[in-house]
């Protein structure tokens, strides 16, 4: 009993270290200056240049055109992450609502069509998608960045399952209470789905934030670069021929990690609370 607990802990601690050490490396290294990192390698202790480095990364324009700062990229990532998450939630809720509550011809068929697109992730359809977005003149726009990504079979599927678990009698009570389809959706279904929405929001925000391939393809204008997409590009230019600015690279990496971590931490408490106080 004792012994197995001991080994449980060893494994957990090792796992935690495995995950955390690179993050700590990045954080600590980013607080040194480029020269000392060049001489002494990656750091595990705090250095004295934390504020300098981050200020520089966030505000100093980089890239070929000198039109993009860390702050712009952070903003772009935020727009993508939020647009992606909210877009997916809205679209998939509406789709699931239609599929579950309205009898229309071929409803089930359409559901399976949507479902089968799970087999066609962006990577598979990337060229045609690019063609279309380009053709619509949406390259290098926020909408071009977000809209092609938000149709979501996963989200639709989750919401469909959830809506199906809402008791029929609740729907009927609302009908007798004079709630039409729109009112029912907004007054009853959306509030009931709160926890579901929070869960999907977490997943989708992180997923959207970390998009790499699509932003790389669709944004060539540096002022639209997201952090994940721009980090390397920007640094190559910054680095130039001199000592590599490893501290700045690490600072950008930390910045790129921070918002998803915050979202998870903030919404998790919400999420757990919602799960515990089941509303149905």
């Amino acid at each position: 009993m004792k012994r197995s607990q001991f080994w449980d802990h060893v494994i957990l601690v090792l796992g935690a270290l495995f995950m955390l050490v690179p993050v700590v490396y990045a954080l600590m290294t980013s607080s040194h200056d480029a020269v000392s990192i060049y001489k002494e390698g990656l750091q595990l202790s705090p250095g004295g240049h934390f504020v300098d480095t981050y200020k520089q990364v966030l505000t100093e324009a980089g890239g070929f055109t000198k039109s993009v700062t860390g702050l712009t990229m952070l903003w772009n990532s935020l727009v993508l992450g939020l647009g992606f998450a909210f877009g997916k939630i809205i679209i998939s809720m509406l789709a699931a609502y239609a599929i579950v509550y309205f009898r229309f011809p071929l409803g089930t068929f359409f559901f399976w069509i949507i479902f089968s697109t799970l087999l066609l992730p962006l990577e598979v359809r990337i060229l045609p998608s690019y063609e279309i977005v380009q053709g619509l003149g949406m390259a290098n726009t926020y909408s071009g960045l977000i809209i092609p990504l938000i149709a979501s079979a996963t989200g639709t599927f989750y919401f469909r399952q959830f809506f199906k678990s809402v008791p029929d009698e609740l729907v009927e009570a609302a009908r007798i209470d004079g709630a039409g389809p729109l009112k029912f959706f907004i007054d009853i279904l959306v509030p009931l789905s709160k926890t579901m929405i929070a869960a999907i929001f977490i997943i989708m925000f992180v997923f959207g934030w970390n998009q790499y391939l699509w932003p790389t393809l669709i944004t060539t204008d540096e002022s639209l670069f997201t952090l994940v997409r721009g980090m390397k590009q920007i640094l190559q230019v910054w680095i130039g021929a001199q000592i590599p600015d490893t501290n700045q690279a690490m600072a950008l990496a930390v910045l790129a990690m921070l918002p998803p971590v915050l979202i998870v931490v903030i919404f998790q408490s919400w999420f757990v609370k919602g799960l515990v106080e089941s509303e149905k």
């Binding site: 008791p167 009570a173 007798i176 709630a179 009853i188």
Partner: peptide, 28 residues
């Protein structure tokens, strides 16, 4: 149903879980 001038009481009550008791009574 809403225009039939009837009210129904269901077996499992079918109260709106996210509304207060007041909200439940007032919604209709």
């Amino acid at each position: 149903p809403a225009d039939r001038d009837i009210a129904m009481v269901f077996q499992n009550y079918a109260l709106y879980p996210h509304m207060t008791v007041y909200g439940n009574l007032a919604y209709g």
